[in-house]
Write a protein that binds this DNA or RNA. Structure first.
Lengths: 229, 229
DNA sequence: AGATTGCTGCCAATTTCTGGCAGGGTTTAT
DNA sequence: ATAAACCCTGCCAGAAATTGGCAGCAATCT
């Protein structure tokens, strides 16, 4: 196994363990000595991987995605740049920032001539309608989704009636003018859609909901007759 | 210089030359022997780079972007997935395909557990308004922009008057419901915006327009009072 | 036909990588 | 406070990979 392959294997090994892992265990996994492991960790860190090593504890990998070298066509890069510009323009503040960071990371590794090319990429995103109310809460909602946490929301439906519901949020739909939270509603015992601009209040309760997000998503898709992706 | 650095340098060296370059020249550039160069080329090809070598001619790199290993945070990957889904949904056919390919490339290199996570990413893009007319031509327009070629368009303005104009297209703006081609108009001697759904006919003439795309873009930005990006 | 160039196998010299050791520093547990 | 576990670095000899030269074949261009 080449060294560069091994580095990817190391990332995956780190990811498998949620709790801190000692270097000795990782070295055993990879079939290398501790000394080499330290060198590999250092190399990964130099490449931008966020591996934290604590004396007396072990290593933890800050959740993230390490991508190996990749080749994209011109048009694929155009699609990526355009997509990130759209998210930067239309996403909530936190997601927008992530999009700008991701784009900056990609651009920063391109040779200067290509970077200019991509920065000046000719695909532009027009400003959207002013952000609908409730966009600030979107970051919170996305966090709840990622952590599979229950969310109590105060919601006004189309008829104007306001209710308070405990929900299991698992997706956000981005439409041109509105964002919609897709969730299981405990009150109605069914899937419900909530426009973010009709959500008045959000309460995060630190309780994990009893189902897996992915499973809810596929079930909801089936119930709505939406094919995969 | 480590080998992996050198491989990136090689990509850049290949890109600088538009015409085929012989291995001997590249080896000279990098300060390595021909023999090692052949090995480096093979390694890059194995990593997905599209380098074509023809006996008696030399090497050419199919235009594209080679990215070194990159680390993204969870949120950054969410932004990328969402962005590509948006482009896949809203872009013209060719760009949409590029977005799907780019996404597939990224997903394919993730370890299985993360791939599921990303595939099932909870950020969804709603279907847009039905694609405005003229979307088929967008791929052509983008190609003209990339190659800095003149474009003769038959256009109906807001008042309904139809004219034929020779234009130098340099950007496309993506709005919620319309796409707008930004171009220098020879007839009006100024920057003009053309909604794609009001373009009736397109004629590609294989003449390069006399200005650089990037320069047109920055000038147009200044004239419109738009800050960079 | 001859020149140019891509491409592969082989092998010795060179360079890099590796693993063990020794020692220092920090955190956790007792 | 002491001990144990662990991260981290420098050093060095042995192991492994890389490199460059050579020889030879195939495809392409003039």
């Amino acid at each position: 196994m080449s060294r560069s392959e091994r580095l990817l294997t190391l990332i995956q090994a780190l990811r498998r363990h949620r709790r801190p892992v000692t270097g000795a265990v990782l070295a055993e996994d990879l079939g290398i000595s501790i000394r080499s492991l330290y060198r590999d960790i250092a190399t990964l860190q130099a490449q931008g991987a966020t591996i934290k090593g604590e004396a007396g504890v072990g290593y933890v990998l800050k959740p993230g995605y390490m991508l190996p070298p990749l080749m994209f066509s011109e048009e694929e890069i155009e699609a990526i740049v355009l997509g990130q510009r759209w998210v930067a323009e239309r996403g909530d503040e936190s997601l927008s920032k992530a999009a700008r960071n991701a784009l900056a990371k990609i651009l920063s590794v391109l040779p200067p001539d290509l970077r200019d090319e991509a920065e000046l990429s000719s695909l532009l995103v027009g400003p959207g309608e002013p952000l609908s109310v409730g966009d600030q809460e979107l970051a919170q909602i996305r966090a709840a989704i990622r952590k599979e946490r229950k969310l109590i929301i105060t919601y006004s439906d189309k008829a104007g009636e306001t209710t308070q519901r405990t929900t299991w949020p698992f997706a956000v739909g981005y439409f041109d003018r509105v964002r919609v939270v897709v969730a299981w509603c405990e009150m109605r015992e069914g899937f419900r859609h909530f426009r973010t601009d009709r959500i008045h209040a959000l309460e995060w309760i630190d309780t994990r909901y009893p189902r897996r997000r992915a499973q809810l998503l596929t079930e909801w898709r089936r119930s709505e007759g939406i094919s995969g992706l």
